[in-house]
Structure formats: structure tokens, C-alpha cells
């Protein structure tokens, strides 16, 4: 076996390519992401436990939940904003968490890229769809078949 007789001096700057950092990233994105995780986590604790308390414990509790209950809640701007905040914060909090896990565990750059693409696409679809539902929800859509409408809708 040919062994090179030339031994590099220590601290000659040779670092295995795997360890060389790909340029430095300036900007505060990672810091803001870190801060967002903590702040959104705190806010979500209040929002989620408030949501659970109102839905499951107040009044008749869990037995009151049906289509009409949800329709009633979304007729009130307060609950629209509450659910909107919960949707956005939970989705962004979760997405950022999974993004972190992908960054930590994906071995190859290609895997990392595709996993994150799928993640961001899924997040975007859910956030857009959810926001749309919260603001355009109408329990008694016009021109719907009468047998599909709940009982509290005015007769057409």
C-alpha cells in the first residue's frame, strides 16, 4: 500500500469536507424562529385550554357539540378570531418544529429539500383552507337541498 510520506502540519487548515460550513448565514431567521416557538407555545397553552374548557365543560359540556354548536360559535367574531389564531399558531409552531427535526435528521441535502417542500406545501394548504372555512362558513347555504340543511335554518 502506498502511504504518502508527506504528513501535513497540524493546524494547516485541513478539515474534512463534511465539516466545512457552507458559508455563513447572516440574518436573524433562526433567532426569530426560536423566539416564535417560545411565544407561540405560551399563547397556544391559553388558546387550547380555553377552547377545550368552553367546548367540553361549560353548560351542557361535550353533549352540546354538534353541527349547530360549531355554526353558533363561528357566527361570533370573537370565536372566529380565537380559532383563527389557534389555527395559524398551531400550524406554524408545528411546521417549525418539524422543519427543525428535518434539519437535524435528514442526511442528504436532496432528502432535506424534498421533505421540507412537502411540509411547506401541506402547511400552506391547511392554513389557506382553514382560514377560508372560518370566514366563509355558512350553515344554511342558499340553493341547497332542503333535506341536507340543519333544522334551525329558515325555510327557503
Amino acid at each position: 500500500m502506498a502511504v504518502s510520506s508527506e504528513i501535513q502540519a497540524p493546524r494547516s487548515g485541513r478539515v474534512a469536507p463534511k465539516y466545512t460550513r457552507h458559508g455563513s448565514s447572516r440574518g436573524n431567521f433562526e433567532m426569530l424562529a426560536w423566539l416564535f416557538m417560545r411565544v407561540s407555545g405560551l399563547v397556544l397553552v391559553v388558546l387550547i385550554f380555553g377552547h377545550l374548557f368552553v367546548n367540553l365543560m361549560v353548560g351542557e359540556g361535550v353533549h352540546a357539540i354538534d353541527f349547530g354548536f360549531v355554526a353558533g360559535k363561528w357566527a361570533d367574531p370573537f370565536w372566529q378570531i380565537w380559532d383563527l389564531a389557534m389555527l395559524w399558531l398551531a400550524m406554524l409552531h408545528g411546521t417549525n418544529g418539524v422543519r427543525t427535526i428535518i434539519n437535524d435528521y435528514a442526511d442528504k441535502d436532496g432528502t432535506r429539500f424534498w421533505l421540507k417542500t412537502v411540509l411547506y406545501a401541506a402547511t400552506a394548504v391547511i392554513i389557506v383552507l382553514g382560514t377560508l372555512v372560518i370566514f366563509t362558513f355558512n350553515p344554511c347555504p342558499p340553493n341547497a337541498a332542503a333535506e341536507l340543511l340543519p333544522s334551525f335554518c329558515p325555510a327557503p
Binding site: R21, S24, F29, E30, M31, W34, T100
Partner: peptide, 13 residues
């Protein structure tokens, strides 16, 4: 500033 990097303190879990 150096440790505010993408690979700096924020990668600590």
C-alpha cells in the same frame, strides 16, 4: 454575531 449563525446557538436543542 458569529454565534447568531444558522449553525450557531440556535441549533442547540
Amino acid at each position: 454575531e458569529i454565534l447568531n449563525d444558522k449553525e450557531g446557538v440556535w441549533r442547540c436543542r
